[in-house]
Simulated assay, not measured.
Amino acid sequence: MKRIELPLGLLFSNTGPYGKVAHTLLNGARLACAEINADPESGVTFHPIHIDPKGILQNYAPAVQSLFDRGIHHVCGCYTSSSRKEVIPLFEKHDALLWYPTHYEGFESSTNVIYTGAAPNHHMSPLIDFLCSRFGRRAYCVGSNYIWGWESNRVMREGLQKRHGEILAERYLAVGETDLEDIISEIFETEPDFVFNAMIGESSYAFFRAFRKACEARGIDQAKRFPIASCNLSEPELRAIGPESADGQISSSVYFSSLKSPRNAQFVAAYSKLFRDGPVVSAEAEAAYIAVHILAKTVAQTGTTKVSEVLKAVAGQAFDAPQGRVMIDPHSFHAALTPRIGLSRSDFEFDVLVEAPEPVAPDPYLVSSASEYEVASRRANVRIVS
Rank of each mutant, 00 (worst) to 15 (best):
L57Y: 15
R134I: 10
H334I: 06
S251I: 03
K260A: 05
Q301A: 14
A315W: 04
I187S: 05
A315I: 06
E237R: 02
A214G: 05
Q249P: 00
T298P: 12
S261Q: 07
A139L: 11
V195C: 06
Q301G: 13
D363V: 09
S308G: 00
R345I: 00
R3H: 14
N59F: 05
L259V: 12
S245N: 04
I72Q: 03
K85Y: 14
G117E: 02
V299R: 07
H293R: 12
R212K: 14
E358N: 07
E372P: 07
I250T: 07
V367G: 10
N121Y: 05
E309Q: 14
V155C: 10
T24N: 05
V175P: 04
F207G: 06
H50M: 01
D179R: 13
C78R: 02
G117D: 00
M199T: 15
G136L: 10
V64C: 01
S282V: 10
V87A: 00
I72C: 09
E151R: 15
E286A: 04
D363R: 05
F350G: 06
A96Y: 04
Y365W: 15
I220L: 00
Q65P: 00
T305R: 09
G278Y: 01
S110W: 07
E105H: 14
A269I: 08
Y365T: 12
R171A: 15
